[in-house]
Computed example of a mutant assay.
Amino acid sequence: MSLFSWLRPAGPSLPGELQQRLQRLPSAPELSECSLREQRWVVLDLETTGLNLNKDRVLSIGAVVIEDGAIDFSQQFERTLQCADLKLAPSVLIHGLGPSAIAAGSDPAQALLDFMEFVGDSPMLAFHAPFDQHMLGRALKDHLGYKLQHPFLDVADIAPLLCPQAHIRDAGLDDWIDWFKLEVFERHNASADALATAELALILFSRARQQQIHSPQNLQQRVNQWKRRQRAPSF
């Protein structure tokens, strides 16, 4: 044993079956040069106890798949996670997940492993992706000792990049839904928000192809260039 091993927090203790499944998870590749249409995308949304990146916790995961240029309704994921010592927060008024729903939820380690098996080696899309990426990554580390390395693309960046005429760069998902006149019948639960984000993403992929952006890798490069321009000082 290393002299300083006691300084490192021990990883989560998992049953053997979960450990075996964890070891079988595929490695996350870099974004592909295949076409946007050929790429399988996992579009996710999280409901959390709040917006504090370091203290709040994931309450539910909703996800849908875009494949072959369409939403594949045969591939959907939805889990509510059990959360010990949950205190009612203002967010419950938005997502509606109260203590009884949380108590009836799935074991977090099991649910998170189920989700990563659902994801496979696909890149992920989300609206305000850095938040979802951070919260999911923290939950995976805490409950599974797993390091999230999958690529994430942020629909909140892709939309203003491809549609500058909208003039709504710092907009929320509802603003883009309204701008594109999408018919969304439910909001503010993880599955419904993931579906709305996927519908928006399909429109944006069509806009991307019109602007000669044909691959996930190319799309990420263009987003990065756009973000650098946004941060550059104007004279």
Rank of each mutant, 00 (worst) to 15 (best):
R57Q: 14
R57C: 04
R57N: 03
R57I: 00
V58H: 01
S60K: 06
I61R: 00
G62A: 11
V64E: 13
V65T: 15
V65W: 13
V65M: 12
I66Q: 02
E67N: 13
E67C: 07
D68S: 14
D68M: 10
D68F: 05
D68T: 08
G69N: 10
G69M: 08
G69A: 09
I71N: 04
I71Q: 10
S74G: 12
S74Q: 15
Q75D: 12
Q76S: 09
F77G: 00
Q82Y: 00
C83R: 02
C83K: 01
C83F: 01
A84Q: 04
L86M: 07
L88K: 02
A89I: 03
S91N: 11
S91C: 03
V92L: 11
I94M: 12
I94W: 09
G96M: 02
L97D: 07
L97V: 01
G98P: 00
G98R: 08
P99S: 14
S100H: 06
S100W: 08
A101T: 12
I102M: 03
I102N: 02
I102D: 00
I102G: 01
A104R: 08
G105Y: 01
G105C: 04
S106G: 00
D107T: 01
P108V: 10
A109R: 02
A109D: 06
A109T: 01
Q110D: 05
A111R: 05
L112V: 07
L112E: 02
L113M: 03
L113R: 08
D114H: 00
F115I: 07
F115S: 08
F115P: 00
M116I: 13
V119N: 09
V119S: 07
D121R: 09
D121N: 15
S122C: 15
S122Y: 11
P123Y: 15
P123W: 15
M124Q: 15
M124N: 07
L125V: 07
F127S: 09
F127H: 14
H128A: 14
P130C: 15
P130I: 15
F131V: 10
D132V: 13
D132N: 14
D132Y: 11
Q133C: 14
H134D: 06
H134T: 15
M135T: 07
G137T: 12
R138H: 08
L140F: 10
H143I: 03
L144P: 01
G145A: 06
K147Q: 13
K147V: 14
L148M: 11
L148G: 02
H150W: 13
P151V: 13
L153Q: 09
L153K: 03
D154E: 08
V155N: 04
A159K: 08
P160H: 10
P160F: 10
L161Y: 02
L162M: 06
L162K: 04
C163K: 11
Q165A: 12
Q165T: 07
A166D: 08
H167F: 12
H167C: 12
D170C: 01
A171F: 03
A171Y: 04
G172L: 10
L173C: 06
D174V: 06
